[in-house]
Simulated assay, not measured.
Amino acid sequence: RLLVGETMESVIKPLQELAQKLMENDPQMKIKVSYSVGKEKCYTGNIIEGERFFPGWLYEKDDEFTKIAYEGLKSVGLNPEITQYSFCTNGSHYAGEAKIPTVGFGPSRENLAHTIDEHIEIEQLIKGTEGYYGILKSLYKK
């Protein structure tokens, strides 16, 4: 997990410098510092590959895109709270790297996401669908 404003270079550079010093002190030591690479096969059979770098991102509560999404949720009777996720999402790429306005919204509880017992109740699914509709409707007006 990274902090807002950290870059690939700013994160890896101090580690590379430390590795270089250690190798200078011990010529037998060989250290390579790099990001791990993820390689996955898609349902289409295509292979996607990329460095595993997930930048932090944050919008202020008064950010225009955040306000639009918030109002969209309110418009369908939901009572959203503007907060943050405690886990990584694809928003790291879209907001953090591609600079595409992004918000996180989900119908269930955060502590259930990506767990063995992950589940969702039908009522939550229906409200989630309404929430996504509200966000899209609100964005469409703009």
Rank of each mutant, 00 (worst) to 15 (best):
S92H: 01
I47N: 03
I120V: 13
E6S: 10
I116L: 11
S138E: 15
N111E: 15
K67I: 05
V76C: 04
K30I: 11
S108L: 12
Y85T: 15
V37D: 01
G106Y: 13
Y132A: 03
D117Q: 12
D62I: 03
I68Q: 07
T7Q: 07
S10L: 08
K137Q: 14
D63G: 02
L125S: 11
R109G: 01
V76P: 05
E121R: 14
G131N: 04
I135G: 03
G50C: 06
L125H: 06
K141V: 11
D63P: 01
L112K: 12
V11G: 02
Y85V: 15
Y132T: 04
P27E: 14
I135D: 05
P14M: 09
E51T: 11
M29Y: 01
A19L: 09
E17D: 15
M29H: 00
T66A: 08
A69L: 09
T115M: 09
G134C: 04
F53H: 05
I48W: 06
T129G: 11
G128C: 05
E6A: 13
D26V: 03
Q28G: 12
L78H: 02
F53L: 04
I68G: 03
T83Q: 07
Q124Y: 07
I82G: 01
L22W: 12
E97A: 07
G5M: 08
P101C: 10
K99I: 01
K61P: 02
H114Q: 11
L73K: 06
A19V: 05
G5L: 07
P27T: 12
M23F: 05
Y43M: 08
M8E: 15
S92Q: 03
E97H: 02
G77L: 07
L78T: 03
L136N: 02
Q16C: 09
K67E: 13
I120K: 05
V11M: 08
P55N: 07
T129Q: 01
E130P: 00
R1A: 14
G128F: 06
I48R: 13
I31T: 09
L73V: 04
E17M: 11
L22P: 02
L18A: 13
D117Y: 10
K74L: 15
I47C: 04
K142W: 05
K127S: 10
S10F: 06
P101Q: 10
K32D: 13
E121K: 15
I31H: 07
G131S: 06
D62V: 01
I48E: 14
G38A: 14
N79A: 05
M8F: 01
E51G: 00
E97K: 14
P27C: 01
P80F: 01
